[in-house]
Amino acid sequence: MKILVPVKRVVDYNVKIRVKPDGSGVELANVKMSMNPFDEISVEEALRIKERGEATEVVVVSIGPAKAEETLRTALAMGADRAVLVETDDAIEPLAVAKILKAVAEAEQPGLIVVGKQAIDDDSNQTGQILAALLGWPQATFASRVEIGSEKATITREVDGGLQTIEVKLPAVVTTDLRLNDPRYASLPNIMKAKKKPLDKKAPADFGVSTEPRLKLLKTEEPSGRKAGVRVNSVAELVDKLKTEAGVL
């Protein structure tokens, strides 16, 4: 079985986000970029499935600028076998991403697609679900445990009330949650080997997909600063303030 894993290049999660002075978006110049954390979890899970002998190949794909090749090389250094870069400088929305991934999946014929549940830059949480609908495949979202059988997969999902275990037929789309695993670090020898692994470059036009945005960004603003707290001298005073000022009791 082949596993397809989409990965996205985003601003590193340790970086403090700055909004451009004109409010047109987030400042990306001279900012550290890295693989989306949920996608790291997806790559790790795919590699673990392969190491258990339940898959034969892990293919990673990214849609973005030429610099996204660095993100793919990181996935290859972790242990992925091949990479595909669909190169574009456009701001890609989830629907266009899903359409491109559908075309890649039809070409690669994977038995499983493992997608991060969301990207930390736009927090859309849409791509995996749209992709499953376009392919007509079963989906299992917010996975915290994945078990692969001969023709089915058993997925434990994180839901508001606790954990839910479902069974889906393969091929399927799985989106990963934070508690699924802890991604490995790429060793120096594997980083060097990754430079020689196959990386195929495509364009959205190769798949007949338009990347023209359907949404217009009007303005980006930083959140307002939080007001200072208030010190109270007793529980009675706290309860009174909650009643009269906060309105929560």
Rank of each mutant, 00 (worst) to 15 (best):
I3Q: 01
V5K: 07
K8T: 01
K8M: 01
I17M: 13
D22I: 12
G23T: 12
V26M: 09
E27V: 12
E27G: 05
A29P: 02
K32D: 06
M33W: 07
S34T: 13
P37E: 07
P37G: 09
F38D: 02
E40V: 05
A46P: 01
A46K: 05
I49S: 00
K50N: 03
K50P: 04
E51S: 14
A55R: 10
V60C: 02
I63W: 00
I63S: 03
M78W: 07
K99H: 11
L101H: 01
L101W: 00
K102Q: 14
V104M: 07
P110D: 00
P110W: 03
G111Q: 02
I113F: 01
G116K: 02
G116I: 00
K117N: 04
A119F: 03
I120K: 00
D122T: 13
D123L: 08
D123Y: 14
D123C: 05
S124H: 11
N125K: 10
N125T: 13
Q126P: 04
T127R: 00
Q129D: 10
Q129T: 14
A133I: 09
P138W: 05
S144T: 15
V146L: 11
I148Y: 03
E151Y: 10
K152D: 12
A153C: 09
T156P: 00
T156N: 00
R157W: 12
E158W: 08
E158K: 13
Q164F: 02
V168T: 01
L170R: 04
P171T: 12
L178M: 13
L180P: 01
L180R: 03
A186P: 04
L188M: 12
P189C: 04
I191T: 13
M192Y: 12
A194I: 08
K197F: 09
A203Y: 15
G208D: 07
V209D: 06
V209A: 04
R214A: 14
L218N: 13
T220F: 10
T220Y: 10
A228G: 10
A228W: 08
R231T: 15
V232N: 05
N233M: 13
L242R: 05
K243Q: 14
K243L: 13
E245F: 07
G247E: 10
G247C: 05
V248I: 15
